[in-house]
Design a protein around this nucleic acid. Structure first.
Lengths: 128, 128
DNA sequence: CTACTCCTTTGAGTTAACTCCAAGTCAAGC
DNA sequence: GCTTGACTTGGAGTTAACTCAAAGGAGTAG
């Protein structure tokens, strides 16, 4: 698969794809005889994985570390698992924070509705 | 309240507090006769509000707009409410995304546990 | 062969959100 | 009166995460 197709498929610019590879956010992609990137299925899965994880804010350094560990083989299974567990935990606590903020927003919204409702009542009383 | 206290209270650097004010993320804080910021209770509530909302990723521009609308008075009640409703919606969809990512992580973690478990069995079989 | 398009690399530029710095002011302590 | 320290301002510097640009190679169309 060429970079243009991967770019379309995952809605990431070619520059971003090259950048991700450069900094080790995905493993190095093979080139064909003329030096052009040829993404395998597995490369695509990495791209998709990274896009997904970045999308919810997992730090780049963590993902880079994950790729590095992955490339070191089976000895790092446990460490990789721990890394995922830690990120899962982080996501959970961020979600909890978001939940309380959403409740706060909802409270404020209700207060606005209340206020607006009262304004309208006043208006109806004063304008015949 | 002096900037140093506000800085401590909300764990934001003085630079950040000044920056927030400069870009309109909080309304302008009054200065005393010698030009030094003197935060009122309301200023503090703004700081806390902004810190909270930024913490879950509400965009700065949106918050700036909210402050502007607020300062325009009661005519903007409805618009402000809509703005909050929209942000509430955004948070909800981000939370849904995070939830599916967390499920995915959990799935991966289980797969790791499985694999590691099998490795150990093999080890136990081969080492007396 | 020439032109064109798509890719390559290296390195520089951009944007957001701070963060730091220099020069200056003011009030308090000695 | 001088020093100290916390503050002021405007503006420059930093970092992360892209994003763009310049220079060049490979393969295809005319």
């Amino acid at each position: 698969m060429l970079i243009a197709e991967v770019s379309d498929k995952f809605d990431l610019s070619q520059d971003t794809l090259r950048y991700y590879e450069r900094i080790g956010l995905i493993p190095r992609v093979n080139r064909n005889k003329s030096g052009i990137r040829d993404y395998t299925e597995e490369d695509c899965r990495w791209v998709e994985f990274v896009k997904c994880m970045r999308g919810v804010g997992l730090p780049i350094e963590v993902l880079i570390e994950y790729v590095e560990l992955f490339q070191q083989g089976d000895e790092t299974l446990e460490v990789r698992k721990q890394l995922l567990v830690e990120q899962h935990k982080q996501l959970l606590s961020r979600m909890e924070e978001m939940k309380t903020v959403m409740e706060r927003l909802q409270y404020k919204i209700s207060a606005y509705e209340q206020t607006i409702g009262e304004k309208e009542k006043t208006l109806n009383r004063t304008s015949p």
